[in-house]
Amino acid sequence: MVRIQVPSVWNPEGRTDFEADEGPLPEVIRRFAEAYPVMRRRLLDAAGEPLLYVNVCVGDELIPRHLRRDTVVPAGATVTIIAPMAGG
């Protein structure tokens, strides 16, 4: 399993921590968005692809958009989703 952190304002409960299965980063994000439909429009485009302007950290590493397709999230890692404008 991997830990996924999202902004507290993305769901009505203010929850920030979730779990998901490990795997290729785009697939981890897609599965997570499908499991939590309230966050789907913030993570995926109309075609179901991860939105590239949303930043993603795996551990402490910010993954550039051109490298996300080839990034694999190992078990035990934390994926943090950071909106391009955080806070507010």
Partner: peptide, 26 residues
């Protein structure tokens, strides 16, 4: 604070003032 806001520290730049999109609180 929010963990995703914390993660932006040291990388992002501060933005101020809010915008026409916002409510009074922002």
């Amino acid at each position: 604070c929010d963990p995703t806001v914390r993660k932006a520290m040291g990388t992002y730049r501060v933005i101020r003032g809010g915008s026409w999109m916002n409510l009074r609180y922002q």
